[in-house]
C-alpha cells in the first residue's frame, strides 16, 4: 500500500490461486483496485486475466470443478464468505462481456429490467433512470426515438453500449469489463472508451483487454499477467514507458503475444 493514497482501495485480493480440476490457472495473485480509477488487465491469451476478473463477481462459480483460494474483499467485506449473497454481490460488481448480450427485449425493458426486479415501479423514476443511464453510456441520441425497439436490432457497438447502460441503471460500485471492444469495429470501440472515461468518476472500473493501446489510452493503472502470474502492476504511463521487468517490456513491444 502506497503512502500517497488519496482514493481508497475498494477491492483487495490476496494470494489468489485458482485450479481448473488439477490444472493451476492463477498463481498467488495480489492485486488491489482503487475507487474511481480504471485498471487495465493485460497479457497474452490464456494468461488468466479473464479468469481472474470473473473471480471478482463470482461468475466462476458457474463452472464445475473449479477451486479458488485466497482472500477477496469488497469494501472490507469477504465476498467468498459463507453467507455471501452472490445475487447482491453481482448488483454491486457488474459485468460487461466480450460479446454484447442484451436481452431479447426492447431497449427500454433492457435498461429497466434490473430496476423492476428491485421493485421500482414508478414510471417517472424508470423513465428518468433510462434516460440517465443511456446518456451516461453515450447511446441516448441513437436510441431515444427507438426505445421500444428490440435491443437486438441494433449494431454490435450500440448493443454493447446498451449493455453498459443496463448495468449503469442498477448503479453498481464496480464495473468489470471482459474485452468489451474486441468484437467491435474501431469507431464503436472509441465510443466505448469515451463512455468509460466519462463515467469513471462515479465508478471503479476494471477492464480486461488485449489491446495495449486501449489500455494506455484509458487506464490509470495497468496490471500485466503472464501464465497465471501477476508480473507487474503500476501506473499506466510508467509501465508503458519504463517497465520494471523484461517480460513486460517484451510483451509491450510485441515480441510475443
Amino acid at each position: 500500500m502506497t503512502t500517497k493514497t488519496e482514493a481508497k482501495e475498494i477491492i483487495k485480493t490476496e494470494n489468489v490461486n485458482l485450479y481448473y480440476g488439477e490444472r493451476k490457472a492463477l498463481h498467488g495473485i495480489n492485486l488491489n483496485f482503487r475507487e474511481n480509477e480504471i485498471t487495465a488487465l493485460i497479457g497474452p491469451s490464456g494468461c488468466g486475466k479473464s479468469t481472474y476478473l470473473r473471480c471478482l463477481n463470482r461468475m466462476n462459480d458457474l463452472i464445475p470443478n473449479i477451486t479458488i483460494t485466497g482472500s477477496f474483499t469488497l469494501n472490507g467485506h469477504n465476498i467468498y464468505g459463507p453467507k455471501e449473497d452472490t445475487v447482491q454481490l453481482r448488483k454491486e460488481v457488474g459485468m460487461v462481456f466480450q460479446q454484447p448480450n442484451p436481452f431479447p427485449f426492447s431497449v427500454y425493458d433492457n435498461v429497466t429490467f434490473g430496476l423492476k426486479l428491485a421493485g421500482i415501479k414508478d414510471k417517472k423514476t424508470l423513465d428518468e433512470r433510462v434516460e440517465e443511464s443511456l446518456k451516461q453510456a453515450a447511446i441516448w441520441n441513437e436510441v431515444k426515438d427507438k426505445l421500444h425497439k428490440s435491443a437486438l436490432s441494433f449494431s454490435g457497438g450500440q448493443q454493447q453500449r446498451i449493455c453498459i447502460a443496463r448495468l449503469l441503471a442498477i448503479q453498481p460500485d464496480v464495473i468489470l469489463l471482459d474485452e468489451p471492444t474486441s468484437a467491435l469495429d474501431p469507431i464503436s470501440s472509441q465510443m466505448i472508451e469515451d463512455t468509460l472515461l466519462n463515467i469513471k468518476d462515479k465508478y471503479t472500473i476494471i477492464i480486461v483487454t488485449h489491446n495495449m493501446s486501449q489500455a494506455s489510452r484509458i487506464s490509470d493503472k495497468t496490471a500485466f499477467m503472464l501464465n497465471g502470474h501477476l508480473m507487474e502492476v503500476g501506473d499506466t504511463k510508467k509501465m508503458f514507458l519504463t517497465p520494471d521487468k523484461q517480460e513486460t517490456s517484451d510483451y509491450l513491444n510485441g515480441k510475443f503475444g
Binding site: 463477481n57 458457474l62 462481456f97 434490473g114 426486479l117
Partner: peptide
C-alpha cells in the same frame, strides 16, 4: 450461455434468469 451470464451478472437469481431471460 451469454444470455444466462447476462442475467446472472446483473444480480438476477437463477430462477429469475430462467423465467425472465
Amino acid at each position: 450461455k451469454l444470455q444466462r451470464e447476462a442475467g446472472l451478472s446483473l444480480g438476477l437469481s437463477k430462477s429469475k434468469t430462467i423465467v425472465g431471460v
